[in-house]
Design a protein around this nucleic acid. Sequence first.
RNA 1: GCCUUGGUGGCGGAAUUGGUAGACGCGCUGGAUUCAAAAUCCAGUUCUUCGGAGUGUGGGUUCGAUUCCCACCCAAGGUACCA
Length: 966
Amino acid sequence: MTIFAPVCFGCRLGRVAPRILYKMMNYQPTEIEARWQAYWAQHKTFAADNHSDKPKYYVLDMFPYPSGAGLHVGHPLGYIASDIYARFKRHQGFNVLHPMGYDSFGLPAEQYAIQTGQHPSITTQANIDRYRTQLDQLGFSFDWDREVRTSDPAYYRWTQWIFSELFQSWYDLDTDKAQPINLLIDRIASEGNAGVHAAGAEMAPACSASDWAGFSPAQKEELLQHYRMTYLAETEVNWCPALGTVLANDEVINGRSERGGHPVVRKKMLQWSMRIAAYAQRLLDGLAQLDWPQPLKDAQTNWIGRSQGAQVIFHTLPSDYLKETYPIEVFTTRPDTIFGVSFMTLAPEHPLVDLLTSPDQRGAVQEYVAATAQRSERDRMADVKRISGVFTGAYVAHPFTQEPIPVWIGDYVLAGYGTGAVMAVPCGDQRDWDFAQHFSLPIPNIFKEVDVSTAAYESKDGVVIDSSDFLTGLDYKSALKAAIAAIESRGLGQGKINYRLRDAVFSRQRYWGEPFPVFYRNGVPELVNHAHLPVVLPEVKQYLPTPTGEPPLGNATHWAWDTVQNRVVANELIDQKTVFPLELNTMPGWAGSSFYFLRYMDPKNTAALADEEVMKYWGQVDLYIGGSEHATGHLLYARFWTMFLYDRGFIPQEHFAQKLINQGMITGTSAFVYRLEDNKTFVSKGLIGDRPVTPIHVDVSMVNASDALDIDAFKAWRPEYAQAVFELENGVYYTGREVEKMSKSKYNVVSPDEVCATYGADALRLYEMFLGPLEQSKPWNTAGITGTLGFLKKLWRLYSDGTQCLVDESTPSAASLKTLHKTIQKVTEDVTQFSFNTSVSSFMICVNELAQQGCKARSVLEPLAVLVSPYAPHIAEELWQMMGHNGSIAHVPFPVFDPAMVAESEKEYPISFNGKTKFTLSLSLDTPKDEVEAVVMAHPKTLEYLGGATPKKVIVVPGKIVNIVL
RNA sequence: GCCUUGGUGGCGGAAUUGGUAGACGCGCUGGAUUCAAAAUCCAGUUCUUCGGAGUGUGGGUUCGAUUCCCACCCAAGGUACCA
């Protein structure tokens, strides 16, 4: 792609001058783009106004984590789409909020700090600078004055503020929303907690008003911890020894850490948790109101995992070693099968296991429990099919028949779900069936005319309950109803809904995250007052956990809160009496990203998260674009925090983003050379035949569009290839191609920097859109970009012959107007529906047609420039200026489609053949008419069916069926 | 296993409510221009034994199916002992 060969054979001096002219007259993307990017920055062309009479529109991208690797061409896909939409909305007269920022707390910067000793903020700043440069060169219309960074103390002050508010709230099930904790305290102080219905507080001990009055601060806090929206709890967590931290469920993939792929084990630790489970039902219900992709909604629905059933109490039968009766609660979704119970299984971690175990079984049970505890999550998942368990020696009574039922423990029952105990119905549940089969337990059949000798019958359809007392003869639905009614009326339990969604662990043993605004006075957690936030990260000597296993903040000589001076005390001498240790953990990555969309509205506000009026004005995010990988992480947490802030009246919206689009991934197209066993001969792809070859990734920049390898570049690539021998096809080495994820190790990464330098940002933007539907994943192939570059050159030539602007005041031809308005119609439709790929095609067709028509008319070329502007903003600005305008094209009204300009007008004329079938004839006419004489031709197969022949001349009328006799 | 999305030329992908499949671009072929290249322009490009065949496979509905229905196969992503 060299346009100016500096020297060429036979080049005469006389040709130098024309070549300079050539430079002047042609489309010069790099020069144009740099100039307009500077203009936009200088004039703040895209600054959004917080107080405007215009209608607002909020277009948001998921902000990036600024990684050291920089951007590759796949990253900006969503940003380009959102930018097109934001620019389109500005042309339509909206006050558009289109901000960008950085999710700048994170593990990579910390790990780099551990290795080099460099403070993570330095790495982070360098990465942000690089990101900014890369983003700027793509010509995005961000309002950079609103930039936020989650690692900025001025920002995380508000992360800490939200944490404080969560701490000072509880979830009231009576009003079904979060409430200030003071309301609860007042109520307990006056009437105790007996009548309080709070989410997650099932285990809270009973506390009367007088109990409360006698409580010490520590006792009060202990009780309140059962209610707070964020609370300390001894929880089984995903502990990653290699990273030295706990991970949330969504950060664990197949028993390994999402980042780094290190093994993860279960461990009990005292951690801060977020009571997201309180919102399970609302998070589920709210999905209906959101215009989000169905797969994403499904992912959240599955993650929340609502299941409806019943909680049933089984009582233990007394025996020699078990004198008393103990209740064991189970959760089941199939209470209709309760008469099929033949045993009960407890999770090995179930609190009653120890108590229930008989002396005979004690050895076996203890061995089993210990063995299960040692197995990592990964081991447990690796051999899901292995059946294991032990009999406890205890029996419970069947709640209806009073038959004795043996109690087993087995690791297929999870401690964390439901009650950690199941009533096993082998005939209706495959896992129970397998367990029964393995341990030769009975498999009673309670289904009519169903064979359960080889497998359980899990279907709910077409089932008739048998041998089940009052349920016999009922189908699934009526049996379910009757069973729950009986369970409730006899006091054996109640109908219940269970969620898979668990409260989220909120503590991380990391340095590079938000500190908690929490200190411990005599071991009791207390908040740092709002007025004194932020609690700023201390300097530490190293970023690893301390030798005693404390989180990295423990490396600060002191990390404490001075309750007299109201300030952080770090690395200095302290007065022990008024200074108390601060929380050593930091917050997880998702904290800062769960409300950033609010902060963009009013990023410099120091008095509040954002001004109330401003929040009312901007409201919800109208369009949110980002990857689907955040379905069960960021997008769920952000919904949770938004609902919480809404409940407490801090923000006016319960849902933060109305419409969401998941952009697809742009994959890389890797290239391979094939080496023979002699280790130096490389065979062109077509010549391999049956010979054994080793495919080797080669850098995609050395391969051209027809898969031919640049042999010289390849030899120079690595010293060991310098002496390589090639078997060529017709003098060319053809490489193999494969579509893979873009990655350095696969040598298929294409940087937007190079692409912009060679083809320009406009060509890149158009090409990324042209590649295919936004939501679909599609492979990158740099060669194809010549298509959109060619379009831009043609567009340029429409306006300029190099020396002067060609646009004149002539009256456009009807054909040119038709071309223009067809394009206006198509592009408006496409943008509205986010199908950006097809509008690029429309642009190409439009420019080709106008060029053929020799159109020079201002009344066509001006609207065309506006039309193109969202997609290719730099060239549009340049053309706009060339046509004599001052200032930016960015706020010029978008052209409006005029049907009259499209010479054809379509009307529908209903007809029928031989009175048999109705057809609709769509006629395109230069001028619409009420009566048209048309020549009707029919599809040959239609004629065969009708038994006639066309063409026939007929008069057709819109709105009236005309019968054509064949 | 379950959920979701998709399967159309050599490639990325188009195709209103069912109505001429393959728009647009890449790549390829031929031509113009050039001392030569680059760039640009023009023409052609689903396959074909020239009868036809053809939108993953097999059925169905229909005068007519890429589009609607049923069954299956394949690929990608998510999720997984959730009782």
